[in-house]
């Protein structure tokens, strides 16, 4: 079973990399952007076949390692 997770920075956390990407895009002519925020994406392939159990396990992984909840949010976006 494959599970996809995205990790994003919380709204109030400064994202200097996102800012530079925004500026670069702006310089390339994409000048109608309000903001760019950079995040992380994980694909986790697990032996667990029960979607509920697999999702719970991945949620635990997010809380314990994949995300730092002081600054980041996680979202499980796909289970297949």
């Amino acid at each position: 079973m494959k599970i996809s997770v995205i990790i994003t920075l919380k709204k109030d956390v400064l994202d200097p990399q996102g800012k530079v990407i925004h500026q670069t895009l702006d310089g390339m002519g994409f000048n109608d952007l309000n903001e760019v925020r950079q995040g992380k994406y994980f694909e986790i392939d697990t032996k667990e076949n029960d979607p509920k159990k697999a999702k719970d396990k991945v949620e635990e992984m997010c809380k314990k390692l994949l995300a730092n909840l002081v600054i980041e949010n996680y979202k499980i976006i796909d289970v297949q």
Binding site: V13, L14, Q17, N68, V70, I71
Partner: peptide, 10 residues
């Protein structure tokens, strides 16, 4: 407590 982020000016 807290975290250490990327330096402000990269």
């Amino acid at each position: 407590p807290g975290v250490l982020l990327r330096n402000k000016y990269l």
